[in-house]
Simulated assay, not measured.
Amino acid sequence: MAKVIVIYDQPKDQDSFENYYREVHIPLVHKVPKLKGAEVHRVFQGLNTNDHLYLIAELHFNNPEELTQALASAEGQELQADVANLMPFLNKPPVIAIVD
């Protein structure tokens, strides 16, 4: 399995972030080919960090090759580009990790 993990800090405009994330960003996630599953976790406590962690999203793929193909697809490119549309609601860009 391979995953994309996206870690968001506390938004500066939480209501607008939540609305955009739910109404626009999540539907784009579900269009990504080869996606096997997706999870969103609300962070209620972060340890060993000064960051104010808010949300962690995981996108699941069968393997690194399918993940790479999915992100290179038109739908994957549209999803990645949409992160810029979240920035007005955030204090800093999300951390993105690609893991196996």
Score class of each variant (00 low, 15 high):
H41P: 01
Q80Y: 00
P93D: 12
M1E: 06
H60F: 13
P88M: 13
A72T: 02
P27G: 11
L47C: 03
A2Y: 12
K12N: 13
Y21I: 00
V99L: 10
L47G: 03
A70I: 03
E65W: 13
Q69F: 09
F61Q: 09
I98N: 05
P11V: 06
H25D: 06
N62E: 15
D51H: 15
H41T: 12
K3I: 12
Y8P: 00
K12D: 10
R22W: 01
P88C: 12
N19G: 01
N50A: 14
L47Y: 12
P64G: 07
L71R: 05
A2K: 09
F61R: 07
L28K: 14
M1S: 09
A74V: 00
P94C: 03
K12F: 04
H41Q: 14
D13G: 03
L59H: 13
L55Y: 07
H30N: 15
N63R: 07
D9E: 11
V40E: 12
L35E: 11
K36I: 07
D82Q: 01
Q10N: 02
L79Q: 02
D100C: 02
A81R: 00
H60Y: 14
D82S: 01
Q80P: 00
D15C: 02
K34S: 15
I7N: 10
E65Q: 15
Q77A: 05
E58Y: 13
V6K: 05
N19I: 02
K3T: 13
D82F: 01
G76L: 01
H52S: 14
V32E: 07
S73F: 03
V95Y: 08
D82C: 00
P88V: 11
Q45A: 13
T49I: 04
V6S: 12
F44T: 15
A81E: 04
N91K: 04
S16L: 07
F17G: 04
N85L: 10
P93C: 08
H30T: 14
N63G: 10
R22L: 01
L67E: 08
A97D: 03
R42A: 11
A57P: 00
V83N: 01
L47H: 10
T49W: 06
I96M: 06
V43E: 09
P93Y: 08
E58A: 13
M1R: 02
G46K: 10
N19M: 08
D51E: 15
Q69K: 14
D15V: 06
L79R: 01
L53T: 03
K92T: 11
D100A: 08
N19R: 13
L47P: 00
Q45H: 12
S73A: 02
I5N: 10
Y54N: 12
V29M: 13
I26S: 03
V40M: 10
K12H: 06
L90S: 03
T68Y: 08
F61V: 07
